[in-house]
Computed example of a mutant assay.
Amino acid sequence: MPSPIPVTRLLPRGFGLDLGTLSSPLSRRAGASSSLRVPTATHGKLAQRLWSSAVQWRELHELEPIGCGGFGMVFKGTYFGETVAVKRVRRARNTLASRQSFWAELNAAHLRHDNLVRVIAGRVGTIVMEFAGDVSLQQVIYGAGPLPPELCVRYASDVVCALRHLHAHGVAHLDLKPANVLVSRAGVCKLADFGCSLQLGRDHAACALEIGGTYTHRAPELLRGERVTARADVYSFGVTLWQLLTRDVPYRGERQCVIYAVVAYGLRPQLDRDVFHRSSAGRACAELVSCCWSAEPNLRPSAEQLHSDLQQISLLVF
């Protein structure tokens, strides 16, 4: 039964939700078990045409805020009876940058994978996604106690599976970090937040400096404004894996000092931790992490290679 309370009553002033026809790649099929479907390709002008079908926004109910940040706010609700997350991108002073961030969110909208948060619908400034969980990998890492090493490897494998699928379809995430990985109630990691992502295959050297992302996890070539490749995600994965195993923050100090040291002096998080030396699996992880954050992108493993390496590590005993 539809909620008697209008959706707009549950949103803060200025949320901008339009209950009329909105652009979306999704349609609901009568009688279908899974109502949230998406076309197989969305980019450029084709994306705008595919996102022109009507969305039944009156089916969006019970919205409640669950998080906020520099990007805007995230709400939890239901859409056609399915639990969803609604992301409202904060309107920036630079309208063009705000729109670019929104369209970047759609770079993976046509992809379906168990380790990617599924995009359901959207309009400029608003994204409707599957609700993948309200706990991030960041919260899990720095939670009550240390994680079992085998669980760390399993979480890392989930992230790599997401990267492998993205890269195979020509998408670079470019903001991989524990805070952008959601952990479902079933313990499955799902990569989220594509606001910094890019479609690969074109020369992005001109826009590399404009890419956002978190400096502690950002590859040195991106900090220098050089060409974007999928190996930038591998660098970020190396820092993320280091956090999983050490439960520490990568760097301490002023932002500009850290960035300068990473670019000019090859500063990296410390590998002289007990977890990296007390077992063969730990030593294998240290070697893998070191390869991932190589200063030279071509020396980093691919996501495909990472997947194979983690499978081998999972067979070892910490």
Rank of each mutant, 00 (worst) to 15 (best):
V119A: 09
N107F: 11
S34N: 14
D134W: 00
T42F: 11
G77V: 03
E130H: 11
H43G: 04
V128A: 01
V38N: 03
Q138W: 10
A109W: 05
R29H: 08
H43F: 14
G133R: 10
G44P: 07
R37S: 08
Q48C: 11
G72K: 01
V124D: 13
S101D: 03
I127H: 00
H110T: 03
R123P: 02
Q48H: 15
G70D: 13
L22C: 10
T40K: 12
G31T: 05
T95P: 06
C68P: 03
R58E: 14
S27M: 13
R118A: 03
T95Y: 15
A121L: 09
R58A: 15
D114P: 05
F102V: 09
E62Q: 11
W51L: 03
A54N: 05
V74D: 02
S34E: 15
L22Y: 06
S53W: 04
M73R: 00
E105L: 12
F80Q: 07
R91M: 08
P39D: 13
S101H: 05
Q138I: 01
R58W: 15
D134F: 00
M129A: 04
P39K: 15
T126W: 06
G31V: 07
P39V: 06
V89R: 00
D18N: 02
L96P: 07
E130F: 06
S52L: 06
A47T: 11
R37N: 13
E130L: 09
Q138N: 11
A30G: 13
G20A: 14
R28I: 12
T42W: 10
R118P: 04
T78N: 02
S98I: 03
S23H: 06
T40H: 13
F80N: 10
A104R: 15
L60T: 04
S35L: 12
V55A: 08
I127N: 01
D134Y: 02
R91V: 12
L63S: 04
T40P: 06
G20I: 14
L137Q: 00
E130D: 14
R123G: 12
A85W: 02
